[in-house]
Design a protein around this nucleic acid. Structure first.
Length: 469
RNA sequence: CGGGCUGUAGCGCAGUUUGGCAGCGCGCUGCGUUCGGGACGCAGAGGUCCCGGGUUCAAAUCCCGGCAGCCCGACCA
């Protein structure tokens, strides 16, 4: 049989591979309106796992979920000058509704800073009301000229946190806490994606923020993807929405606010950070299906063994799916590999006669034969170990493809297939613009020891530069 | 908004130069044989050839006018 690969190989055409894998793994489809996305059940299953893990961490950091409206008065947007300037090109605006033209156009939220600001101002009266820590799970709309499924769509799903604090120090600390304890932790411990954590230079900062924190991951083609961001908004939005509180000294003071978000883009990051020519590799903690049980040549014996194993695995807390499909064996294997299910359990009559089954790993392609009564324990052990191995592999790739350089020319060379680290001072004199001409941007700034700087004016910072999505 | 390209079955495409039966691969449906690494046989279904106009005995094909999409140059999670 001519062994033809199901997907365009990554080395041949990475964007094509990305599109192929999304279609064949049944993650998503293009929506009817350009730039929109239909998320299919398997793709949404991954998103639900992402949501569950992030939500748990967000709540552990003290924020509570709430919901604010999709429609925002246009006048809200215009209250914060930089904010409206940053977003106006990508706004979707409703001018007609209820059969007539509206007196004031309504904006479909591109983010909820403004509405939430308005209500925070109402709810915060006293220092005793602070900090106010809110989060919402929502869809937002930013009209995109160059859409790509999961990475840039005109409508996307995300989580946006919004907080108000009594002091700048408290706001800064909270933004950092979210960034490290929610995002960085989630990326490492759930998505198995190591990232460079740093601050954005002024040129890349969120519209209206005084500081933007980012987690930058490396995709398998060496490009960077911003996987989560946290912003210190200073008092910009507090001023615009008159968010005052009375201090314990009896003074009226302005709040300090933050906002932070992670979106369905994470699914795109997951695909591109781990996937190979055989398809997705979904790390076990984010996998909606951790073990697929494949019945080979269905018979009463096979069927009984499959059901029994399904029960045992489910009792062991493992997420499973049973495939009793009627296609050929090879075809079904390939389909599950494309979907990136971590473990595949092959249950067939031949092995069953010896009381055995075969367990195969997606990440390493290793197979082992084991007795029926060992399955649940072995699967649990493998799943537990796979996360670290996938993370380890990704970390090695990140390190191997990050080069320390001293000149802009070297940086351009190094970012052909990865990231470059260069002294921030070396880019200040036109270097950043020179890189931008090559479609290379400063992804983030770090201190020498990798920790978060207070702002970009700190001395001796390191810039991580790359081409990006 | 400027430059290049493309609209034909669910998807990928050929056919357009030189007008003459609407095709191919994959997928899909039915039956049968298969199921331990992309199975096979037989039988089928599926079309506004992007839209409108024109030329012609005859248009997917030629002409005119629209529309849509893709790729490349300024923003963003």
């Amino acid at each position: 049989m001519a062994q033809q690969s199901a997907l365009t190989p990554q080395a041949e055409d990475f964007p094509r591979w990305y599109q192929d894998v999304i279609a064949k793994a049944e993650l998503a489809d293009n929506g009817p309106v350009r730039g929109t996305m239909v998320i299919r059940p398997y793709g949404y299953g991954i998103w639900e796992r992402i949501q569950a893990e992030l939500d748990q961490r967000i709540k552990a950091a003290g924020a509570k979920n709430a919901y604010f409206p999709l429609f925002i008065p246009e006048s809200y947007l215009t209250r914060e000058a930089e904010h409206v300037e940053g977003f106006s090109p990508e706004l979707a605006v409703v001018t007609h509704a209820g059969g007539s033209e509206l007196a004031e156009p309504i904006v479909v939220r591109p983010t909820s800073e403004t509405v939430i600001g308005e209500y925070m101002a109402k709810w915060v009266q006293s220092y005793r009301d602070l900090p106010l820590l809110l989060n919402q799970w929502a869809n937002v709309v930013r009209w995109e000229l160059r859409p790509r499924l999961f990475l840039r769509t005109s409508e996307f799903l995300w989580q946006e946190g919004h907080t108000a604090h009594a002091t700048r120090a408290d706001a800064t600390a909270y933004a950092q806490r979210i960034h490290l304890e929610v995002y960085r932790d989630f990326l490492l411990n759930v998505l198995a994606v190591p990232t460079y954590v740093g601050i954005k230079p002024l040129s890349e900062r969120f519209a209206g923020a005084i500081n933007t924190l980012t987690c930058e991951g490396m995709m398998r083609d060496g490009k960077a993807l911003q996987m989560a961001t946290s912003h210190e908004l200073g008092q910009n939005f507090a001023k615009a929405f008159e968010m005052y509180f009375q201090s314990d000294q009896g003074q009226q003071e302005l709040c300090w606010t933050t906002s932070w978000g992670a979106s369905t883009r994470l699914v795109g990051g997951l695909i591109m950070a781990h996937g190979d020519d055989q398809g997705l590799i979904v790390p076990p903690r984010v996998a909606p299906i951790q073990v697929v049980i494949l019945a080979i040549k269905e018979s009463p014996e096979v069927s009984a063994a499959v059901s029994q194993l399904a029960d045992e695995l489910t009792k062991a807390g493992i997420r499973i799916e049973i495939d009793r499909g009627s296609g050929s064996f090879g075809r079904r294997v390939v389909d599950w590999e494309i979907k990136g299910v971590p473990l595949r359990l092959e249950v067939g009559p031949r092995d069953l006669e010896q009381g055995k089954v075969v367990l195969a790993r997606r990440d390493s392609s290793e197979k082992q034969s084991l007795a029926l009564n060992e399955v649940a324990e072995t699967a649990a052990t493998l799943l537990a170990g796979m996360h670290d191995e996938i993370l380890h592999g990704a970390t090695l790739r990140l390190e191997a493809n990050t080069h320390s350089v001293t000149s802009v020319d070297e940086a351009i060379e190094a970012t052909a297939g990865g990231f470059a680290k260069i002294a921030w001072d070396a880019l200040k004199d036109g270097g950043e613009a020179q890189l931008r001409n090559e479609a290379i941007t400063v992804r983030c700034l770090q201190r020498r020891d990798g920790s978060l700087p207070a702002d970009e004016t700190e001395s001796d910072l390191v810039a991580i530069v790359a081409k990006s999505y």
